[in-house]
Amino acid sequence: MASIMRPGLLRQACSPAASQRMLSTFAASSVKRSSPLAQQIRPAFERSSILKSTRVAAFHATRSQQILPAPPQRVVGTANDPTPVPPPSPSHGSYHWSFERAISAGLIPLCVAPFAAGSLNPVMDSILCALLVVHSHIGFEACIIDYFPKRRVPLLFNSANWALRIGTVLLGLSLYSFETNDVGITELVKRLWAA
């Protein structure tokens, strides 16, 4: 049973020089640096020569399935520092939440109307475009916050956020240009669908 739990122990016991090594307490030369005994004695960060699978097997019954590598992990401060709590602010909380929901709810009639009426008039189409820009921006922002945590990858977080902001402004400009010079989003989709 112990051999299943700790393969390193088994390997030590089975190797030919085991008895000699187990009996020698003081003679450092007889303990190979790669042996499990030496591995246990050495500092943890030096235990690199022992096989990774041997170390992991003691705790995990199944193969590890790593989807993505872990992002950099650093500890700021000590273990006794309290978690920083941001100052409560409704513009980052309840107002923001309600604003997001109002945008989403406003999109429902604007998405249903073209299916009923065939298309939208230019004013409604422009409102749809504006809501889509804001809704998309909020969605991408949520993805950046979730997948590029500021605490772990501050540089990536900031650059992604700025790229998104620039992209959103350019998209607004582009849709303004499309709405004023061309036929409008709903009419474009309608014509493309019929093409």
Binding site: H135, L171, S174
Partner: peptide, 13 residues
């Protein structure tokens, strides 16, 4: 969907 919108918008610009 939003990615498509962004790609179309930026290409149009």
């Amino acid at each position: 969907l939003s990615g498509g919108l962004y790609i179309f918008g930026l290409s149009y610009l």
